[in-house]
Computed example of a mutant assay.
Amino acid sequence: MAPQHDDARERLIEGTCELLWDRGYVGVSPAAILRRSGVGQGSMYHHFKGKSDLVLEAERRSAALMQEEFTAIFAADTTAFARISAYLLREREVLRGCRVGRLVADPDVVVDDQLREPVRETFALLHRFLAEAIEEGRAAGEFAASLDADETADTLAAVIQGGYALSRAEQSVAPYERAVRGALALLRASAPESSARTDH
Rank of each mutant, 00 (worst) to 15 (best):
E136K: 03
L88G: 02
A64P: 07
F48V: 07
R138Y: 11
R90G: 12
D77N: 07
H127T: 14
T78C: 10
E135G: 07
A153T: 01
I160G: 01
A31K: 09
D22L: 05
G137E: 11
A31L: 12
A76S: 11
R128S: 09
R60D: 11
E135L: 04
M44D: 03
A82R: 03
I73T: 01
D148G: 07
G137M: 06
E142I: 06
T152F: 00
G101R: 00
F81L: 12
G42C: 08
E93N: 08
A86F: 04
H46G: 14
V119N: 05
F143W: 06
L56K: 04
R128L: 08
L126E: 06
A82V: 06
F48I: 08
R23C: 11
C98E: 07
V26F: 13
M66Y: 07
R128F: 03
T122I: 03
E135H: 04
A76F: 12
R138H: 11
A72I: 08
Q67Y: 05
R83E: 10
G50C: 12
R92Y: 04
I84V: 10
V55F: 03
F74C: 14
L56R: 04
V28R: 00
V110F: 08
L156F: 01
F74N: 10
F143S: 09
I73M: 05
